[in-house]
C-alpha cells in the first residue's frame, strides 16, 4: 500500500519534470544577474525552464564534486573555468560545440575540440575603496597591491575567503602567479596583518566597504561597478601590478538526461544577445565587438589582466587552498 503510494508519487513527480523540460542549472553568477539571463533565454526558448542552484564558486564546485556519484545538475552555467577544468578532469563534462562557437574569441573556450566548456566573460579582481571613510581616517587611496601592506590599512581591509569564493581564489592565484609562490605567500602573510575579515562571498567585501564597515574591500569589477552605480561613496580601483582573473564559462554535465535542452542553453550562451547581457556586467566578454566600457570603472581592465595559467590554477587549486586555510583560517582571531 505504502509502496504503491510512493510509486504513484514518483511517477507524478517524474511526469511533471518531463513535461516542462526543466533544466537544473548550477551557477555562481550573482543573484542580480541571473534574472535577466533567465528571462532572455526562456524568451528565446519557451520550451525550456531553468531551475537555478546558486551559490558562491567554491560551494558550487564542492557541491558538484560531492554529487559526482549521483549528479543533480544538467548544466553548469557561469562557473569559474578553473573549477570546470577540475570537473573535466573527473570526467563529469560532456563535449559540445554550440552553434556559433567559431565567432567567439579563441582564448575563451576549452582548447579541446569539440570543447568541454565555453567561456562567457572574464571577471577580474577590483578594489572597492570608501572615499568618505578614507577621508575621515586620513587613509590614502591604494594604487597597488603593495600599498595595502602599509600599516595605515590595518583592520581596514576585507577580503573574500578563497576556499568558498571564486573571487577570493582568483586573487590568490593571481598573486602567486604574478609574484611567484614564495613572494606571493609572503605578500599574503603581510596582508593578513591588515585584514579585518575574510568573507564567504566575493561581493560582501565591496558591500562592506560601501557601508563604511571597512575602508577597503577586495572584490571584482562587476560588484564594484554596480555598487558605485547604486550610490555608494566608493571608488573602484584596479591595482597597478595586475588583476587576478578567471573566466566564467558554461558546460554540459555528462550525465544529463536533458541533453537537447542543455544544448539550447549552450547555444544561447554564445549568441550576441547573451553577450550583450554579459557586457552590461563585465568589461570583457567572449564575443568580440560586443563589450563596452563599464561606467564606473576607470582604467583598462583588459590591459591590466595578469598572466594567468588556467591549467596551473586548476591543477593547484586544492593544494593552494589547503595552504591558505592552514595559514589564515580559524587560528587568526584578531586580538
Amino acid at each position: 500500500m505504502i509502496r504503491r503510494a510512493i510509486g504513484i508519487a514518483l511517477v507524478a513527480f517524474s511526469a511533471t519534470a518531463a513535461h516542462s523540460q526543466e533544466l537544473n542549472v548550477y551557477t555562481a553568477l550573482e543573484a542580480d544577474q541571473v534574472k535577466a539571463y533567465q528571462a532572455a533565454f526562456e524568451k528565446a526558448n519557451p520550451s525550456v525552464k531553468i531551475r537555478w542552484v546558486r551559490d558562491s564558486t567554491g560551494v558550487v564546485t564542492a557541491k558538484l564534486l560531492a554529487e559526482k556519484a549521483n549528479p543533480q545538475a544538467d548544466v553548469v552555467f557561469g562557473l569559474a573555468a578553473t573549477s570546470l577544468m577540475l570537473l573535466d578532469k573527473e570526467g563529469m563534462l560532456q563535449a559540445y560545440a554550440p552553434a556559433g562557437l567559431d565567432k567567439i574569441k579563441p582564448t575563451m573556450r576549452d582548447p579541446a575540440n569539440p570543447p568541454k566548456w565555453v567561456g562567457m566573460d572574464i571577471w577580474a579582481s577590483a578594489i572597492c575603496f570608501n572615499t568618505v571613510e578614507a577621508g575621515k581616517k586620513k587613509i590614502a587611496a591604494p594604487q597597488s597591491w603593495a600599498d595595502l601592506l602599509k600599516p595605515e590599512y590595518k583592520g581596514q581591509v576585507a577580503m573574500p575567503n578563497p576556499a568558498s569564493s571564486g573571487t577570493g581564489y582568483l586573487m590568490v592565484s593571481g598573486w602567486l602567479q604574478m609574484m611567484g609562490e614564495e613572494k606571493g605567500w609572503k605578500f599574503m602573510d603581510g596582508l593578513h596583518q591588515n585584514i579585518a575579515a575574510y568573507s564567504h562571498s566575493g561581493s560582501k567585501p565591496c558591500r562592506q566597504a560601501a557601508a563604511g564597515e571597512y575602508a577597503v574591500g577586495f572584490s571584482f569589477e562587476y560588484r564594484a561597478n554596480k555598487t558605485k552605480k547604486d550610490g555608494a561613496p566608493i571608488e573602484a580601483i584596479l591595482p597597478s601590478e595586475g588583476l587576478g582573473w578567471d573566466m566564467e564559462a558554461a558546460a554540459i554535465m555528462a550525465t544529463t538526461k536533458h541533453a537537447a535542452a542543455a544544448k539550447k542553453l549552450l547555444d544561447w550562451s554564445v549568441t550576441p544577445e547573451a553577450n550583450k547581457l554579459y557586457a552590461q556586467n563585465f568589461a570583457i566578454v567572449a564575443l568580440p565587438g560586443v563589450q563596452e566600457k563599464l561606467t564606473h570603472i576607470s582604467g583598462d581592465v583588459e590591459k591590466l589582466l595578469a598572466k594567468n595559467d588556467f591549467v596551473w590554477a586548476a591543477a593547484n587549486r586544492e593544494r593552494i587552498l589547503a595552504e591558505w586555510i592552514k595559514r589564515y583560517d580559524g587560528k587568526s582571531e584578531k586580538k
Binding site: 567554491g58 575574510y198 583560517d329 587568526s332
Partner: peptide, 21 residues
Amino acid sequence: GGQFNVLATDIYKQVIGQQNF
C-alpha cells in the same frame, strides 16, 4: 563571529563550503 570559529559554523563550512559531509 568574524574569524572566531565555533563548532556550529564549522559544520556549516564543512558541509556547505567544502561539501565535506
